[in-house]
Simulated assay, not measured.
Amino acid sequence: MRALFVGGVIDNNEVDMDGTEPPRHYPPETGSGQSRYRLHAVGRRDGVVLCAVYGAPGLERAQVLRVSDERGHARRFDTVLEEVD
């Protein structure tokens, strides 16, 4: 799956991730108490996660999803993004 980032120091970057489900935060476990990117949405096809959209700390979900839409993340992966609680 592909992790897509909105905001912060790695804005508009992508990372390949292993596994079947994306972690709630990226990086998954730092142990440093440092703020991490939060998962906001996933794109699935046939039950398989193709992409995960992460937002920088402090960004509202609406802003993350708006920017993701402007960048065409769902279209690139031919999926519909589902918000994650």
Rank of each mutant, 00 (worst) to 15 (best):
F5R: 01
A74Y: 04
V53H: 05
V84I: 15
V48E: 15
E14R: 13
G31N: 09
L81E: 04
R61M: 01
P57E: 06
P22F: 02
S32K: 11
Y37R: 03
T20P: 05
R44C: 12
V42P: 01
R44T: 07
G7F: 08
V9C: 09
G7H: 07
A56R: 09
R38K: 14
G47I: 07
D16H: 10
F5Q: 00
P23K: 04
E14F: 06
Q34A: 15
V49C: 06
H40G: 03
G58F: 02
F77D: 01
E14Y: 08
E82F: 04
C51N: 05
V84N: 10
P22H: 07
L50Q: 06
R66P: 00
P57Q: 10
L50C: 04
R2A: 01
R38V: 13
L59D: 00
R66Q: 11
V67M: 12
D78T: 08
R36H: 08
E14W: 07
M1T: 07
T30P: 11
E21R: 15
S32G: 13
V42S: 01
H25Y: 14
G31K: 12
E82A: 13
H40P: 05
T20A: 14
A3W: 03
R61A: 07
E60N: 02
V67H: 06
R66G: 03
D78R: 14
Y26P: 00
E83A: 14
E14M: 09
A56Q: 05
E83F: 04
R45W: 04
L81S: 10
L50M: 06
R36G: 12
G58T: 02
N12Q: 03
D18Q: 15
L4C: 09
E82G: 10
Q34N: 11
Q63V: 07
R38D: 11
L50I: 00
H25C: 06
E21T: 14
A56S: 15
D69H: 12
R45D: 07
L59V: 00
P23H: 04
V64W: 10
R45C: 03
D16N: 10
D85M: 05
Y54S: 04
A52R: 02
A41E: 03
N12C: 00
P28Q: 14
D16T: 13
R45S: 13
R76Q: 10
D78L: 09
A41H: 06
G55T: 08
E60F: 01
V6I: 15
V49H: 02
D46T: 11
G72I: 09
P28H: 10
Y26C: 02
G58I: 06
G7I: 06
V15Y: 09
R66I: 00
P28K: 14
I10W: 02
D11S: 00
L4A: 02
R38A: 15
H73E: 07
E70F: 05
D85S: 14
C51Y: 04
D78K: 11
D69P: 01
H73N: 01
R44A: 03
R75E: 13
M1D: 07
V64C: 05
T20E: 15
S35C: 06
H25A: 08
S68E: 05
E60T: 00
G7Y: 03
S68R: 12
E60S: 04
T79V: 15
E82M: 08
P22S: 05
R66T: 07
D46S: 14
R2L: 12
P57T: 11
R2C: 01
R76T: 03
